[in-house]
Design a protein around this nucleic acid. Structure first.
Lengths: 186, 186
DNA sequence: GCTATTTAATAACAGTGTTATTTAAACACT
DNA sequence: AGTGTTTAAATAACACTGTTATTAAATAGC
């Protein structure tokens, strides 16, 4: 019995491979070799390849959520909202492959839990509580901000940003500022 | 010599498989069987698997561009801009797998040509020419609209929309309206 | 100490991308 | 027409892959 610590070893080995070489280079045999066990252990401890990727996704989600929660709350909610967006972008650009596994939709329609965007949702609801939201449903605003930030980061990861010839950070600020101006009143 | 018409047959067979069963189910042997040739023909006519996917991507890009161009120009540029976004979403939801191949960033940083978003860029520049853009650089506005639309569609494809519990079309309209209000003055 | 059961390693199967080899066809030239 | 040569496609091979069946080893209970 290899115990639960090998579960962790396997998941971090798989996460390293995904982060370093991409999802397509993830093979159960190389993961098993890296950890020093046989592929049978992966099957009995975690499951098949899809389950392993799911486990890596859960682990990555934990890191992502931790960094979103690390964004503090100031007296200005709009500043918090933008800081959440900036942290979102920063984590995605630092872990592009893991981000793709989380939100890339590789597996078709999946059950995405709302924990990763909970801080974002909180900020938007705080704005809504102040009566400054230009639309009635705060969740639609959450969806809008999430879409903008997600789209910008995924396109930047894919290399689409250089195409329109702008500095990345400035362009991201424009997107944040644009959505804020469009959805919340001063 | 199988000629150029087999090039087309191979590409459409591959595109069908990607659209029906996903990119991961694309195998050179099944494509060759579907067309009625050997895998050697694919290698000599197109190249390896990555080249085949690239060819499918080019084909899909053609269809996408055609539908973007089909969005006519009215006297109201904002209506045109929104119609382009709606057509963008419609095509993406109808061809989710092909859309992922085009803009999913499966291959890491790639050279994305700006033809697919040329109509969008035109509309934004037309708004800029009217002096109604709230930011100085029109390309940053193009980038912002593209990010919002791309993010909304990819998240909807991945199944993230149901999560925030909104009707898809309404939420998309909110995103369009939000970005327009944020970036262009009345 | 010996059996019984769990656990992991090995081996096997079907399938993959890719390359090497072989067979077939087309063509040029006398 | 027949022979030699070049080209093209099919077949076979190699090194992988995910997954499952089988075998060996270690542990547990008595």
């Amino acid at each position: 019995m290899y115990g639960a610590e090998y579960h962790q070893k396997i998941v971090v080995a798989a996460a390293q491979i995904i982060a370093d070489e991409g999802l397509s280079h993830l093979s159960l045999r190389t993961v098993a070799r890296k950890v020093g066990v046989s592929t049978t252990v992966i099957y009995s401890l975690i499951g098949n390849r899809e389950d392993l990727i799911e486990a890596v996704s859960r682990e990555a989600r934990g890191s992502f959520v931790r960094e979103q929660r690390a964004v503090g709350c100031t007296e200005n909610v709009l500043v918090d909202l933008k800081n959440l967006g900036r942290a979102y972008r920063r984590w995605s650009l630092e872990n592009p492959a893991l981000y793709s596994v989380m939100f890339g939709g590789y597996f078709g329609p999946q059950e995405i839990d709302r924990e990763p965007i909970a801080p974002l949702a909180d900020a938007v609801h705080r704005i809504h509580a102040q009566g400054r939201l230009k639309i009635e449903d705060p969740w639609q605003a959450v969806w809008a901000f999430w879409s903008a930030v997600h789209g910008a980061t995924t396109l930047e990861i894919a290399g689409g940003c250089v195409m329109v010839g702008g500095q990345s950070e400035e362009s991201f600020e424009v997107i944040l500022e644009g959505m804020v101006r469009g959805l919340v009143s001063a």
